[in-house]
Amino acid sequence: MGHFIIRRLVSSILALLLIITFTFILVHMVPGGPFASEKQLPDSVMRNLEEKFHLNDPLWLQYVKYLGQVVKGDLGPSYKYENRTVNEFIRHGFPVSATLGALAVAIALVVGITLGIIAALRQNRWQDYLAMVIATIGFSAPSFIVASLLMFLFAYKIKIFPTAMWGTPAHAVLPSLALATLPTAFISRLIRANMIEVLQQDYIKTARSKGLSERVIIYKHALKNAILPVVTYLGPLIASIFTGSFVIEKIFAIPGIGRDFVIAITNRDYGLILGLTIFYAVFLMAMNLIVDLSYSLIDPRIKLTRGEG
């Protein structure tokens, strides 16, 4: 296991370097720049700005300097929000996005797994159909529609929740529900499909014939095996949902980093784009590593370290 983790770390650092390089090239390839504006700036002003942010250095030098900075844990300044650093953006925004994400993942797991189990156990009966119709509507409706609807119904028509902004637990209800819709639907479908498959396996039949209670069979034997695809899905899900959703954060005026990311790209805020990309990549890799490790916890037969013999 230790060997596996070390090898993983090395390959992840290499991958990170590639991500930084690709993104660096990409941000400098797309047209525009952090100081582009509808009102054209005089040349001298533009030169001063480029001087200040070292944008007139050759690209390779900017790249090397940037890497040197990143190694020290400093993601540099934002180019558009001149007096703020990328680290500040993450420090302020990430806890907010992560809180919302955690709530949404919790909702998705509880509701999704419950719906999935009910549907699988009552396969092709009305409970199944109902659960799956709910799930289908859940993922047919993208988050911006769900968010707008929730706000319209529960903040505008029936005023039980605040419209937007962040601060009290009541502020978190509508956005986390909106954020949870899609993963809930996805998880319930995955659980249903896999449960049906698992319930046909021989060891479940054996357990049944041994006279074990249905409860034990479902939770101890079936669910444990049916959950594997959900765990796989959780890695990227947590990585993306914890780093914020642009749409939800915009609609509910939540000061997370999901919104920053998109705004950074439209602003061509090179520092912020790169910094947030690195942050996201590290987070994603860590989550995937945890997922892979948990495979062998759930299913001891899975061995990650052995190659194909």
């Binding site: 100081f35 504006s37 700036l41 001298s44 002003v45 030169r47 001063n48 700005l49 001087e51 200040k52 942010f53």
Partner: peptide, 8 residues
């Protein structure tokens, strides 16, 4: 110049 104000 070092302030690099856009509206200078």
């Amino acid at each position: 110049p070092e302030t690099a104000s856009q509206y200078a």
